[in-house]
Amino acid sequence: KNAAKIVNEALNQGITLFVSDNKLKYKTNRDSIPSELLEEWKQHKQELIDFLTQLES
């Protein structure tokens, strides 16, 4: 999976991924984040940080 797909899947579940101080963060109104999503974010962390940083610049 690529970073764009992961970010879109998160958005579809009401979760916004973003970068703050070079760290991957998220915002959501959900009570909890599915563990498989958290695991996927960890596996692709640097790719996600790079992707989101490019989007914001």
Rank of each mutant, 00 (worst) to 15 (best):
E47H: 06
S20Y: 11
I6S: 01
L48V: 05
K1S: 12
E56D: 14
K45P: 02
H44K: 05
T53S: 13
N2A: 13
K5Q: 15
E47R: 05
S20W: 09
K23S: 11
L55F: 12
E56Q: 15
L37C: 04
A3I: 11
I49S: 02
N8R: 10
A3R: 01
K1H: 09
Q54E: 12
D21L: 05
E56W: 06
A10V: 01
S57M: 13
L11V: 07
L11P: 00
K1E: 09
L52T: 00
Q46T: 08
F18I: 06
E56L: 11
L38S: 04
S35H: 13
F18S: 05
Y26W: 15
L17V: 03
L48I: 15
Q54W: 10
D50H: 10
N22G: 15
I15L: 02
L37G: 01
N8G: 11
F51W: 09
Q46M: 09
F18E: 04
I49W: 04
K27T: 11
F51R: 01
K27I: 10
A10K: 01
L52C: 02
L48H: 00
D21F: 05
S20C: 10
V7H: 04
K45C: 12
L24I: 07
N29G: 11
W41K: 00
L52Y: 02
D31F: 06
Q54M: 13
D50T: 11
L11R: 10
I6K: 02
A4K: 09
K23T: 14
E40Y: 09
Q46C: 07
Q43A: 14
F18M: 06
S35I: 13
T28A: 06
P34N: 05
A10G: 03
N22L: 06
Y26Q: 03
V7D: 01
I49C: 05
Q43I: 14
K1L: 10
K23C: 09
L11Q: 10
W41E: 00
I6W: 04
R30N: 11
I49K: 04
K25R: 13
N2Q: 13
L37I: 07
R30C: 06
Y26V: 05
G14L: 02
V7M: 05
L55H: 14
T53Y: 07
D21N: 11
N12S: 15
Q43M: 14
N29E: 15
K27G: 04
I6C: 03
E9L: 05
Q54H: 14
A4M: 14
N2L: 13
S57I: 12
L24M: 03
S35E: 15
E39I: 09
A3W: 05
K42C: 10
K27E: 10
K45I: 15
N8K: 14
E36A: 12
S35N: 14
A10T: 03
E47G: 06
I49H: 03
D50A: 12
T16D: 05
N29S: 11
G14V: 01
N22D: 08
D31E: 14
P34F: 03
L24Y: 01
L55C: 08
I6D: 01
I33P: 05
H44W: 09
E40K: 14
Q43N: 12
D31A: 09
R30G: 09
Y26M: 04
N8A: 15
E40I: 14
F51C: 02
A3C: 07
E40C: 10
Q13L: 15
A3E: 03
Q54T: 12
L11Y: 12
V19P: 02
N2S: 15
L17T: 00
G14P: 00
A10C: 04
S32Q: 11
L17F: 04
Q46I: 07
F51S: 01
A3Q: 03
T28N: 04
H44D: 02
Y26H: 04
H44N: 13
K5F: 10
K42W: 13
N2K: 11
Q54V: 10
W41H: 03
W41V: 05
Q13V: 07
K5A: 15
W41C: 04
I49G: 01
K25N: 09
F18H: 05
F18R: 02
A4Y: 12
T16N: 06
E40M: 12
